[in-house]
Simulated assay, not measured.
Amino acid sequence: MVRNEQRKLTATYLNGVGMAVLGVGGFAPVVSMTLSGPTSSIVPVLVFGCILASSGLHLLARQTLGGLEE
């Protein structure tokens, strides 16, 4: 039972970090560019990278939960 709880805690942490990456690196620059206009051509690439990183962290969290024991 302890291992299951540790896995759940790890998955929750990974998912939380993924959400933070998405919010800070994915949504914040889009909102900033919408309000103040385009600033740099590299921003869309960074936003896309953050969205991919966030998705990867979420998938890693799901994989961690796949190891739960009955």
Rank of each mutant, 00 (worst) to 15 (best):
V2L: 10
R3D: 12
Q6E: 13
Q6A: 15
R7G: 12
K8H: 01
L9K: 04
L9R: 07
L9M: 04
L9Q: 08
L9D: 09
T12Q: 12
Y13W: 15
N15S: 14
N15V: 13
V17P: 02
A20E: 07
A20G: 10
V21A: 09
G23N: 08
G25T: 02
F27D: 15
F27C: 15
F27A: 15
F27E: 14
A28W: 12
V30E: 06
V30L: 01
V30R: 02
S32F: 14
S32E: 12
M33S: 01
S36N: 10
P38K: 11
P38Q: 08
P38H: 12
T39R: 09
S40P: 05
S41Q: 10
I42H: 05
V43L: 04
V43I: 06
V43N: 01
P44W: 05
L46V: 03
V47C: 03
F48G: 02
F48M: 08
F48T: 02
G49P: 00
C50Y: 01
I51C: 00
L52S: 05
L57E: 04
L57P: 03
H58K: 08
H58Y: 10
L59E: 15
L60W: 14
L60M: 13
L60P: 06
A61M: 11
R62H: 15
Q63V: 15
T64W: 03
G66A: 09
G67E: 08
G67S: 10
